[in-house]
Structures are given as structure tokens and as C-alpha cells.
Simulated scan of single mutants.
Amino acid sequence: MTNSGNCYKPRLLLAKLGIPFLHVETGSGPAGTTSAEFLARNPNGRVPLLQLADGRVLAESNAMLLHLAEGTRFLPADAYNRALAYQWLFFEQYSHEPYVAVRRALLTMPHRAADATPERLAATLIGGNKALAVMQEQLARTPFFAGDEISVADIALYAYTHDAGAGGFDLGSYPAIGAWLRRVEADPGHVPMDWTG
């Protein structure tokens, strides 16, 4: 799905690595992620799903990032910096995506409108701003999340953060995040979220 940050993450890394790929748009429902064919490849019934050249498949966007980044500049060679990249990947899935991405979905996707209760919107706004504040603090100290160089952590966190305004988050309140977004965008090979190869 082109408007999914989780689907954007591997597309963005593939673009930055200069690796060609075929994007296949898949919806939800019987013809998409709940079809027998899709479930045979990913029993969890979710996108993205990466099929490698040899036919093997890999689910979970951050696992895809780690696989694709192996031996590249996006996975730090230093063991500690690599662990920092992993730390931020976990942060993205547990402290950022459930609030920033979910609030964006509640406000922009018609099929999620019924879930957009005042309580849910308030909770996701609080949780998202907490995550953005943690990011702001780190980025006030280092140019990227795992130190001085861009890594998979930046790709993962960029995917939903760059569009956080659609979820009602005021990125103007986080100047270090704004500067970081511009650094990620200036990195060679950058493509927008709607790019599909």
C-alpha cells in the first residue's frame, strides 16, 4: 500500500541502495491480504511482504530493513552503534508507530473513522508527542539516531514522522526533528512515499 509508512520503509531503503524492485499493490480483504495465496506466504495477513529474488519471503518492515541493509552503509559496522540502530527500530515499533502512525490513519483513512473516538485521538496525540519529544532530545545531540551516519533507524523513523502533520502533530515544535528530516531527504537516492519504483 503506497500510503503505508511500513510499506514505504523498504521501498525507501531499496531506492537509497539503488536496488530495482517490482512493487505490487495489495489491498485488504478476500482478494488481497486475506486471500489464501497471500496467507500462504504470510500467515499474519499483513503488508509489506518482501519476496526475494530466490523466491523466499520476508515479513515485517524492520526485518526487511535489517536484511536489505546487511553489508551496506545503513547498518553500522561498530557493534555499539549497530545496537543503537536496533534500539531505535524497537522504539519505532513500540513507542512511535502505535501513536504517530495510528493517529494519522484514524484521521486520514475513511475505513478507520469509526475508531477515531475522542479518547483514542487524545491518547494517540499524547503518546505521539511523547515519542517525538524523545526523538527531539536524541537529535539535538546527534545528526542521526545511531550517531553521525544515517542508518536503518532513520529510515524506519522517517517513514511516519515525515507525514506526522497529517495526524495533527505540530512538527514545528520539534526543530531538531525538522533538521533531521531534511538530512534524510538530502541523502542520495531519496524518494517520496508515493514512489513505487
Results as ranks from 00 to 15, higher is better:
Asp54Met: 10
Glu119Ile: 06
Arg41Trp: 11
Arg82Ile: 02
His23Lys: 04
Pro118Lys: 08
Lys9Ala: 05
Thr33Arg: 01
Gln93Thr: 05
Ala36Val: 10
Glu37Lys: 05
Phe90Gly: 09
Leu68Met: 05
Lys16Gly: 05
Lys9Ser: 02
Leu84Asp: 00
Val24Ser: 04
Arg82Pro: 01
Pro43Cys: 14
Tyr94Cys: 10
Pro20Arg: 14
Ala105Phe: 03
Arg11Tyr: 14
Ala31Glu: 15
Asn81Ile: 04
Arg56His: 12
Leu13Phe: 14
Asn42Gly: 07
Thr117Gln: 06
Pro48His: 09
Gln87Asp: 13
Val102Tyr: 13
Arg104Asp: 10
Leu84Thr: 02
Ala59Thr: 08
Arg82Met: 11
Pro30Asn: 11
Asp54Arg: 09
Tyr99Trp: 10
Tyr99Glu: 00
Leu106Asn: 00
Ala40Ser: 12
Met109Gln: 15
Met64Pro: 00
Leu14Trp: 11
Glu119Thr: 10
Leu68Tyr: 06
Lys9Pro: 02
Ala105Asp: 03
Tyr8Glu: 01
Glu92Ser: 06
Leu39Cys: 06
Leu14Thr: 01
Leu65Ser: 01
Arg41Ser: 09
His111Gly: 02
Ala85Val: 07
Val57Phe: 08
Ala105Ile: 01
Gly71His: 10
Thr33Glu: 08
Ala77Pro: 03
Arg120Lys: 12
Phe90Ile: 13
Tyr8Ile: 08
Leu89Ile: 11
Asn62Ile: 14
Ala69Trp: 08
Leu68Pro: 00
Ala53Ser: 15
Leu65Gly: 01
Leu13Tyr: 13
Gly32Gln: 01
Val100Ala: 10
His67Lys: 04
Arg103Tyr: 05
Phe91Ile: 00
Gly27Trp: 04
